[in-house]
């Protein structure tokens, strides 16, 4: 009681977040039961008949399943491998830039694409990569190379997805690292300079270790969205030729579930995907804790 009175304001603020999670995250969890039912709209969630693991069996036997799982895992893995470090590198590089004005200018222009929706962004990308009118074709022309129709070749699809994510969210993602970098005590830098450390040594020995906790937390958080982060992006870039490498669980769920009313089946796929995501995030947290000897990590 005493603590409640003491931290009243904080608790009141917390209530909003609490309500948000109850209403939008925990409440809808009830609907997950349709993965084990044969859901019909008229019968409602509870009234539809139970079918046990039928949908999961169908899923594992489907010829699409392994292609979807592979595409989803690979795409997200590449995303993590390339798109995750990009903003860190940008922040560290820009941090070294002397001219304040130039630094701010770059930062601001790089935020911009974040505010453009994927529908427009993918239209731009298709246009950039066009073999006849696109800027990429021109650049390749300067080097005497034949233009490639990137959007029409399945082997380029994943690179395009990862590349366009970097292009779009590089600047935005770097904000938090900028903040972390500006929090480093200048005295550490000064004493390092006096000791004769050059720029490169200062980056490796001071900047990177100082922002390591931020990096590991961001890493775990981004794993939380692993497997489900880029539906809008992929659905807008996908075409029949790139299905083989680009069709992921989310686009499949959208196509089959929402457009053909197979809610139960797709709920089963969604549930399975969440399970994979959970295993990954638990694993990542464990790894981070081990590596940092229990200092970092979410819990």
């Amino acid at each position: 009681m005493k603590t409640i009175r003491k931290h009243g304001e904080l608790l009141a603020l917390f209530l909003f977040a609490f309500a948000f999670f109850i209403v939008f995250k925990y409440g809808p969890l009830y609907g997950v039961v349709i993965a084990f039912k044969d859901f019909k709209v008229v019968d409602g969630i509870w009234g539809s008949p139970w079918v046990g693991f039928q949908h999961f069996q169908d899923l594992f036997q489907s010829s699409d399943f392994y292609r979807l799982l592979k595409n989803t895992l690979l795409l997200n893995f590449y995303q993590l491998l390339f798109a995750f470090p990009a903003p860190i590198i940008l922040a560290i590089l820009l941090n070294e830039v002397r001219s304040r004005y130039f630094q701010r200018f770059i930062q601001t222009t790089m935020y911009l694409p974040h505010f453009v929706s994927w529908v427009i962004m993918s239209g731009l990308i298709i246009y950039f990569l066009s073999p006849t009118t696109g800027i990429m074709a021109d650049i390749m022309g300067w080097f005497g190379k034949e233009p490639i129709f990137f959007m029409g070749k399945k082997e380029y699809f994943r690179s395009i997805v990862v590349g366009s994510s970097i292009l779009k969210d590089l600047g935005w993602g770097s904000i938090i690292y900028f903040a972390a970098l500006s929090g480093i005590n200048p005295e550490i830098q000064e004493s390092a300079i006096i000791d004769g450390a050059n720029r490169w040594q200062r980056i490796i020995r001071i900047n990177v270790p100082s922002i390591m906790p931020t990096i590991s937390i961001m890493f775990i958080l981004s794993l939380g969205g692993f497997l489900s982060a880029n539906f809008e992006q992929i659905i807008n870039l996908l075409n029949p030729v790139t299905f083989e490498t680009g069709d992921v669980i989310d686009t499949y769920v959208y196509r089959v579930g929402l457009q053909q009313f197979q809610y139960s089946y797709t709920a089963a796929i969604g549930l399975f995907k969440s399970l994979v995501g959970l295993v990954l995030i638990l694993g990542a947290n464990l790894t981070v804790r081990k590596l940092s000897k229990g200092e970092n990590g979410l819990w």
Partner: peptide
């Protein structure tokens, strides 16, 4: 499709294809 899935079925409406009619019929709405 989402409004139908949540059970909000209007008294009267139009559909474009026999395939839509079949899908809605199958849902019992």
């Amino acid at each position: 499709d989402a409004s139908i899935a949540s059970g909000e079925v209007p008294d009267i409406f139009m559909l474009g294809d026999p395939a839509n009619v079949a899908a809605y019929q199958n849902q019992g709405v």
